[in-house]
């Protein structure tokens, strides 16, 4: 019984950690610009597919991952510079549609360059599985969890300790005030897009040995990440992490104990319930609408 529960928990926590990284990306961009960046999922795809492509060129895996992350970072910055910043006078909904266009564009390019097939990345560790109290766990899950934890900690430190991080936070809280204090808003927003792209690419590369990867993997992972961010209140970093883990665990438990047919519905039911009873999300910040 307990082994069964543990097995579901392992599955849930692993996917949950991936969702959490994606959700963090959504949250970063949302906080800085109020844009829901629907291209976030594509950076996951780039993380996996570019790693694969660089490895095919003969680069060793760590270097290939680094290059993939660099590529995603550049694309994230470009997405902001060329698309979002150019149209910055536009309505937020318009900006969101631009990110949807960007997502389709990136997916389209990936499909032309890398083809439509699924690929598997090798596991980071030699040994693929370990046993814990009757349940088995991918060693790659440990990598996912470890790297996710490190990233979350680094981000937290970045926002608490560095001037740049504080500038981003200030922008999230009050754009006008931040601008008056000398923060270059556009630069901060670009930084948020770049950081989000890096988070997505890391998630994509670390997860690929488990999830496999292809040009359209970002659609589903992006949507799930967005749902996780929404559960967490779409504006809170802690909320994004908890939302992601909660979502992953809820899915695994539902598939395990209730119905695999409706495991995806659980996530969305969760959104409805949270909206009805805790409209700010689990960790939503209390923001007053400006008059």
């Amino acid at each position: 019984m307990f082994a069964e529960f543990l097995q579901y928990l392992f599955a849930g926590v692993t996917t949950g950690a991936i969702y959490a990284l994606v959700a963090l990306g959504f949250t970063l961009v949302y906080n800085a610009s109020h844009v829901i960046n629907f291209a976030q999922g594509e950076f996951i795809m780039i993380g996996g597919m570019a790693t694969l492509a660089f490895m095919a060129m003969g680069l060793p895996m760590p270097l290939a991952i680094a290059m993939a992350i660099l590529l995603a970072a550049v694309l994230g910055a470009l997405l902001h510079r060329l698309a979002i910043a150019t149209a910055r006078q536009a309505d937020v909904v318009t900006l969101i549609i631009i990110t949807i266009g960007a997502a389709i564009f990136l997916r389209g390019i990936a499909q032309v360059i890398w083809g439509k097939e699924y690929h598997a990345l090798p596991s980071f560790s030699e040994r693929a599985s370990i046993e814990v109290m009757g349940a088995v766990m991918y060693t790659q899950s440990l990598w996912v969890l470890g790297i996710a934890t490190v990233l979350v900690l680094v981000l937290a430190l970045f926002f608490k300790r560095t001037l740049l991080g504080k500038a981003i936070l200030a922008t999230c809280m009050n754009k006008q005030a931040a601008r008056l204090m000398g923060v270059r808003i556009q630069f901060v927003v670009m930084l948020a897009f770049t950081l989000a792209a890096i988070l997505g690419a890391v998630a994509g590369a670390v997860a690929a040995p488990i999830t496999l990867t292809s040009y359209d993997i970002g659609i589903m992972l992006g949507l799930k990440g967005f749902v996780a961010a929404a559960i967490g209140g779409l504006g809170s970093g802690v909320g994004a992490v908890v939302g992601g883990l909660l979502l992953g665990i809820a899915e695994a438990m539902t598939a395990g104990y209730i119905s695999s047919d409706y495991k995806d519905a659980v996530a969305f039911l969760l959104i409805l319930v949270i909206l009805l009873f805790m409209p700010r999300g689990l960790f939503g910040s209390r923001v007053a609408e400006r008059v």
């Binding site: 698309a83 149209a87 536009a90 318009t94 549609i97 631009i98 949807i100 266009g101 960007a102 997502a103 389709i104 564009f105 990136l106 997916r107 389209g108 390019i109 499909q111 032309v112």
Partner: peptide
């Protein structure tokens, strides 16, 4: 697909 995304993006 690429063209579709590009057109959507540029128009907006």
């Amino acid at each position: 697909m690429m063209m579709f995304g590009l057109i959507l993006m540029l128009t907006m």
